[in-house]
Each structure stands twice: as structure tokens, then as C-alpha cells.
Design a binder for these strands. Structure first.
Lengths: 159, 159
DNA sequence: GACGTCGGTCAAGATCGTCCAGCATTTTAC
DNA sequence: GTAAAATGCTGGACGATCTTGACCGACGTC
């Protein structure tokens, strides 16, 4: 589904999405039209979801980040989810198994803002908030290497 | 620190980091050398951390994502942190306040892999794992609008 | 073995980015 | 208050890059 050349292209683009086709071509040993075509297909297939820019939240005044675990009150799940989606300060939200229904990342400019936002869901869900003190690993993609046959084994090959 | 033109450029680039200088220039009403210079400074100042590509983990065979809360055993904090950093399947890790010291995102290709990775830290930390069932909000930047004077008020202006 | 498809190259014309000179505005220094 | 310096912009020229279209070879199918 994804050959070695594709993976090498992705690897380069993860580091710099603005790398020129010519440069990409040179690094993987193809012509630039071929690279262009490969990128087009990677986008088309949804392998590449977007070319984007990573912005330092601090530069925008967001001095605080928090991880918020959210447990909607009975019957409020959909309202809560909609609310979260509509609050732009939520920069990420996952729906997970377990007691906490949602785990979300919140960007705020002050403790006051944090309180203000949590207040907006306080009557529809229980929340536990953890302030982020440091980021040992910032968002990065998983390894691009091809799945080994062993990896493809799937569930519980032995233990 | 960031003027309105910068914010508009960032907004365009968040959607497509490969937008040409000429197109950027046209959209914000500048010449391309000016845009080029602005981007250069945004990078230099660290506002733009990177131009990157967002890849669908599924395309790489990562069929499962999990949020793992990690509480290192006494004295093991640094070893655990190092270990997390070295395991490439961790796609994100935040050090937070509260009982859980770290909250991390894990990309795996199978339940077997999940088990294998958690085993590697099991003797140095307690972990709680929540499998991601859905992603109501995928990574997005916080609002780019300028901080309002009110926002700049900071901590506890009243409540 | 003919044929369609897929993925590649090459070359040319169109487009784009960078460099530079020049200009207006703002800031700094006195 | 004014001169000098710094900043940030523009436009045009030129070299680099991208796109397009014509063509080719490998491969699988009938």
C-alpha cells in the first residue's frame, strides 16, 4: 500500500513540508513529475491528511495547556461532545474507553480562562484537570517503517 | 508581537503549508518578497516551529491509539521519562500536575504491541490505559485571534 | 502476442522565488 | 525639531522550479 519511496518522501516532509519537488526528487532518486504524482496520490488516498504548520502556542499568548478528562453526566454525552467541539480552545479531544469518556487538550491564556471554560461544561459533566508542566515529547508521527510480518500477526500471538 | 498580517498568513498555512509565496502574497495583499521575509522571521522567532505533514496513522498500519497515564514508582521518574522518549510509538507526552505524572499518546499496530510496550515500563511505573474509540477533535491550533485586553488580565481578575 | 494500465522520464513553456535598487515611514539620537 | 538610521515595503529582472504533454517500458490479462 505504501512503498519505500513513499515512506522516504513522508519522512522528508514531516521535517519540512515546504521542501521543493526538485529537492524531494533528488533525495529519493526520481524525477519531479513522479514525486508530484506520488504526493498527489498520497493526498488523494488520505495518507497525507494535510500539509500544515506547527505554531508555538506561546506566540499566540497561550501560556497554559491542560489535559482535561471529561465524564459527561448521564444523558449528556452528545451535548458535552458538541460543546467541546465548539470551544476552540480545545486543541484535541479523544473519546476513550474507561470511566473518563473524553480526554482533551486545552489551550488557555490564563488560569482565569481555564476556569471560564471549565465552568461552561461543569453542569453537564465531571472534569479532572491536569496542568501541563512540560512536554517531554511534542506531537510526532509514529515510526514510518513498514509493518514487519511479526507486527502483522495482530492480536495475542502468544504473550 | 504578531500583527494581523502574520496571523492571516499563519491561518492560510495551517490549512495548506505548501501554499506558494505568490498565493500568500495575493491573499494578504503584500508582495511575495515581503511574505517571504515575514515567514523567515516567524520561523526565526520560533512562532513557526515547523512546516510539517499530517499523516493518517492507519495508512502506516497503526490501527490503535491509546492514552496512557503513567505514574513512575518512587525514584524512577527520570528513567521512565527517558524510556518513554526512546519508544517511538509514543506520539506525544505531557508532564502534568496531579497524581499521574505523565499523560502520553501511544500508536500501536495491534493489541499485542500495546501489551509489549506497556510491559517495558511496567516494572518502573504504574500505568492506566484508555483505548481511543474516536477522535471528536483532531489536533488543531488554538484560535489565532489577538489576545484581547481582557485576556491579558491574567490571573483571577475576579471570578 | 496484443493490449491496457501503471508508473516512470524528458523537454518546453508557464509559474514562482529571490535578489536588488529604490522609496516611504518610523525610530533614534542629538 | 531635525537629521540619520533602521525598517518594511514594492517592482522588475533573472534564475530556479513546477506543470503539462508526449513518449516509453514493465507487467498482468485475455
Amino acid at each position: 500500500m505504501l512503498d519505500d519511496l513513499d515512506r522516504r518522501l513522508l519522512e522528508i516532509l514531516v521535517k519540512d513540508a515546504r521542501t521543493s519537488l526538485k529537492e524531494l526528487a533528488a533525495q529519493v532518486g526520481l524525477s519531479s513529475p513522479s514525486v508530484s504524482e506520488r504526493l498527489r496520490r498520497l493526498e488523494e488516498r488520505g495518507v497525507i491528511r494535510a500539509f500544515t504548520v506547527e505554531i508555538d502556542p506561546l506566540a499566540l499568548g497561550y501560556t497554559l495547556q491542560a489535559i482535561v478528562r471529561i465524564r459527561p453526566l448521564p444523558g449528556k454525552l452528545h451535548i458535552v461532545q458538541k460543546l467541546i467541539e465548539e470551544i476552540p480552545e480545545f486543541g484535541e479531544c479523544d473519546k476513550v474507553t474507561g470511566d473518563d469518556c473524553f480526554v482533551a487538550r486545552l489551550f488557555v491564556r490564563s488560569i482565569g480562562d481555564l476556569d471560564g471554560i471549565l465552568d461552561r461544561i461543569a453542569d453537564k459533566a465531571e472534569t479532572s484537570t491536569a496542568i501541563i508542566k512540560a512536554q517531554p515529547i511534542r506531537r510526532r508521527p509514529p515510526p514510518l517503517a513498514a509493518a514487519s510480518p511479526r507486527d502483522r500477526a495482530g492480536v495475542l500471538p502468544a504473550s
